[in-house]
C-alpha cells in the first residue's frame, strides 16, 4: 500500500468538506485512479467537481504532484508512497 496526502483548495475544499486528507491506496495506483477513488469516497458534490459530465477526470482540474504541475497526459502515471497532491479548479486571472 502507498500513502498519499491530498490538499483541496477553494470550492473543492467545500466539496470535500475538508482541506486535507491522507489516503491509503494499493501499490501502482495511478493519479487518475486515485482521483476516482476520492470521487467515489466523497460522492456529491466533490464527485461532480473531480469528474466531468462524461465521467472522466475533469479537464478543468489543476493538479500539482509534489509541487509540479501535472498535465492531462500524465494522469496514468503511478503514484509513489508519500506523494503530495494539491487540487484546484482552473480559475485564472490576476
Amino acid at each position: 500500500m502507498i500513502t498519499i496526502h491530498v490538499r483541496y483548495h477553494n470550492i473543492l475544499q467545500r466539496g470535500a468538506g475538508t482541506a486535507r486528507e491522507t489516503v491509503e491506496l494499493p501499490d501502482g495506483t495511478s493519479l487518475a485512479e486515485a482521483l476516482r477513488h476520492l470521487a467515489d469516497q466523497h460522492g456529491a458534490p466533490l464527485r461532480e467537481m473531480l469528474l466531468g459530465s462524461d465521467g472522466n477526470i475533469a479537464s478543468y482540474l489543476v493538479i500539482f504532484r509534489n509541487g509540479q504541475l501535472i498535465g492531462q497526459q500524465q494522469l496514468q502515471l503511478p503514484l509513489a508512497n508519500g506523494d503530495e497532491l494539491m487540487l484546484f479548479l482552473a480559475i485564472s486571472g490576476g
Binding site: H9, N10, I11, V62, F88, I91, S92, G93, G94
Partner: peptide, 14 residues
C-alpha cells in the same frame, strides 16, 4: 461557480 464563489482571491494559492 468557482469564479463567482471566490473572485480574484480564488487564485492566490494556485
Amino acid at each position: 461557480p468557482a469564479v463567482h464563489a471566490s473572485g480574484t482571491p480564488g487564485i492566490v494559492s494556485l
